[in-house]
Simulated assay, not measured.
Amino acid sequence: MTFRINRRYLQLMRSNAPALLPVLRSRLQAGILATLLLSPDMELSLTDLAKRVDGSMGGVHNEVERLEQAGILTSRQVGRTRLVRAGASALVEPLTRLIELAFGPQQVVAEEFGGLQGVAEILIYGSWAARLHGEPGAEPRDIDVMVVASTEQSADRADVYAAADRAEKRLAKAVNPTVVSAKRWATQSQDDALLQEISTRPVVKIPLAATENEA
């Protein structure tokens, strides 16, 4: 499944070491690796890659050059267009796993939760969302997911917990789902401490799978 990474997420990748994986040289590098390694079948021109990661052509070109020299990325020329994709180096598999553990919750949650029936909205909140938005701190030990059900009874909780279990196995982190109704989320009563906290902190909105009518 190819996943289009959130633009806000990529804007945070342009400079400085990313808070989620500070061993990487820059947020731009992290954005390029997350875009291409987490979607290994994707092949992008430098122009399209620069748009995806919201970086300059020069900066993207330099990062691609370094990564291609290491075999982490590979490219081919089609006319005047240089197309880039994940490489075949022995480094790619373990690096992809690191990238998935650090930046993958957005993709994994989308894949495991995005197709649930009766769901109006899905959000990641808590420490992982805060780190993605650039807040410093310790490595997130778990992933907090809020599933907003279309009605009180529309989302099957068994399906939600099954999706959380699948995501946990892929991410090697606890995935904690919370199911609330769309009415409760829209109201956000002052007496509802959890929703008040979520609404005032960084969140990452997860795209829902297209319905048959939308496809």
Rank of each mutant, 00 (worst) to 15 (best):
residue 58 G to N: 13
residue 134 G to C: 04
residue 66 R to E: 12
residue 28 L to V: 05
residue 77 Q to K: 10
residue 74 T to H: 06
residue 38 L to A: 02
residue 33 L to Q: 01
residue 69 Q to H: 08
residue 119 V to S: 06
residue 121 E to G: 03
residue 127 S to M: 06
residue 98 L to F: 01
residue 121 E to L: 15
residue 29 Q to F: 01
residue 51 K to W: 02
residue 110 A to Q: 07
residue 46 L to F: 01
residue 49 L to C: 13
residue 101 L to D: 09
residue 112 E to A: 07
residue 115 G to T: 15
residue 106 Q to N: 07
residue 43 E to Q: 13
residue 67 L to K: 00
residue 138 A to V: 14
residue 85 R to T: 13
residue 46 L to P: 10
residue 118 G to K: 15
residue 97 R to Q: 14
residue 55 G to R: 00
residue 124 I to E: 06
residue 151 T to A: 07
residue 53 V to A: 05
residue 87 G to E: 14
residue 99 I to R: 00
residue 43 E to R: 15
residue 80 R to N: 13
residue 106 Q to A: 09
residue 59 G to I: 07
residue 104 G to I: 07
residue 72 I to V: 13
residue 51 K to L: 11
residue 112 E to N: 08
residue 55 G to F: 00
residue 45 S to W: 10
residue 124 I to Q: 03
residue 48 D to N: 12
residue 111 E to V: 13
residue 36 L to G: 04
residue 54 D to Y: 00
residue 83 L to Y: 11
residue 91 L to G: 03
residue 70 A to C: 07
residue 88 A to M: 13
residue 145 V to K: 07
residue 84 V to I: 10
residue 142 D to Y: 11
residue 50 A to M: 05
residue 133 H to P: 15
residue 36 L to M: 05
residue 146 M to K: 07
residue 41 D to R: 13
residue 83 L to G: 09
residue 125 Y to F: 14
